[in-house]
Structure formats: structure tokens, C-alpha cells
């Protein structure tokens, strides 16, 4: 079977603060909607997943990756980040508070594996701190885009 490596759409936003974790997840996931890689239903599903399964998406200190299942409204391949200047609590036992909120949409499981692999490697290489050190949303977007090896 022929496999194609699709480009990963990316964008970013910086917020000084949000009221709660749900707003943080919605903020990051709405960026996926802006990129047209996810529907509003997908954003709702990202929030519901945390309500159903707990704040496990906070997978590293200060870092969350919001996502849902492809069939819950993903329309393309995208990774976005909402950078919070004031960190918000998700209720995670060890990794709170969170200031780097990614959202991920993938159209199918093959693309999913590839995109997450790229993101996991970037996080190991210190992506979160590079994002935190960025001054503007444009700079954050550039850092993210380069990390997932996209042309901008």
C-alpha cells in the first residue's frame, strides 16, 4: 500500500489567562477549527474526553495535548498550541499547572501515529521551553511549525 506523508497544518495563539482548563482546551481546539482540520463537534469531544477520562492529557509537567477520536470531527491533520502566560490547573495529580496546551487532529490512525511521533520527539527535544520563550503568537507559531518540520 502506498503511503503519503501529509503536511501537518499548524498555528498558535498566546493568551494571558483563561478561566479554567475547559477554556484552555477549547481555545487550543478552536485553532484546529480555524485551520479547517476539525469541526466544532471535535472541540466538544476534546472537552468531553477529559470529563469522562480525567486530566490524563496533561502528559508532562505543564503540558497538555487535547485530542479526540478521528471520527469525532477531525477533517485533516493539524497541531495547534495555545500558550498561556498564566498557567491553569487541570486537576492533574503531578503535572499541574499547565501553560502549554496543544490540540491535535488527525483524519485517520496512520496519520495519527506519524503526527504524534513528530510531536513526541519535538517535546523530548525541548519544544515546550522554546514555545514559552517566544514573545509573540507569530513567534510561537514559527517555533511549532519548525518543530514539526513544516515549511511556513
Amino acid at each position: 500500500m502506498e503511503r503519503q506523508v501529509a503536511a501537518i497544518a499548524t498555528t498558535a495563539q498566546v493568551a494571558h489567562r483563561v478561566d479554567n482548563w475547559e477554556d484552555a482546551v477549547r481555545g487550543a481546539s478552536r485553532l484546529l477549527e480555524d485551520l479547517r482540520v476539525a469541526s466544532a463537534d471535535y472541540t466538544d469531544a476534546c472537552v468531553q474526553s477529559v470529563k469522562d477520562n480525567g486530566p490524563y492529557i496533561v502528559l508532562s509537567p505543564g503540558i497538555a495535548i487535547a485530542h479526540a477520536r478521528p471520527e469525532q470531527g477531525a477533517q485533516g491533520l493539524g497541531i495547534t498550541v495555545l500558550l498561556l502566560r498564566e498557567a491553569v490547573r487541570f486537576g492533574h495529580e503531578t503535572n499541574d499547572p499547565v501553560d502549554v496546551v496543544f490540540a491535535l487532529a488527525t483524519p485517520d490512525s496512520d496519520a495519527h501515529v506519524g503526527a504524534l511521533g513528530v510531536l513526541a520527539k519535538a517535546l523530548r527535544d525541548g519544544l515546550a521551553n522554546q514555545l514559552r520563550d517566544s514573545l509573540t503568537a507569530a513567534e510561537v507559531a514559527t517555533v511549532l511549525s519548525r518543530a514539526v518540520e513544516n515549511d511556513i
Partner: peptide
């Protein structure tokens, strides 16, 4: 293992 079994747990699997 993770909640949905597709995002977070996949990253953990790679690690």
C-alpha cells in the same frame, strides 16, 4: 494505557 488509547498512550509507547 491512557483514556482514549490513541494519543497520550501512543506517546508513552514510543517513550
Amino acid at each position: 494505557v491512557c483514556g482514549l488509547g490513541m494519543g497520550t498512550s501512543l506517546i508513552l509507547r514510543m517513550t
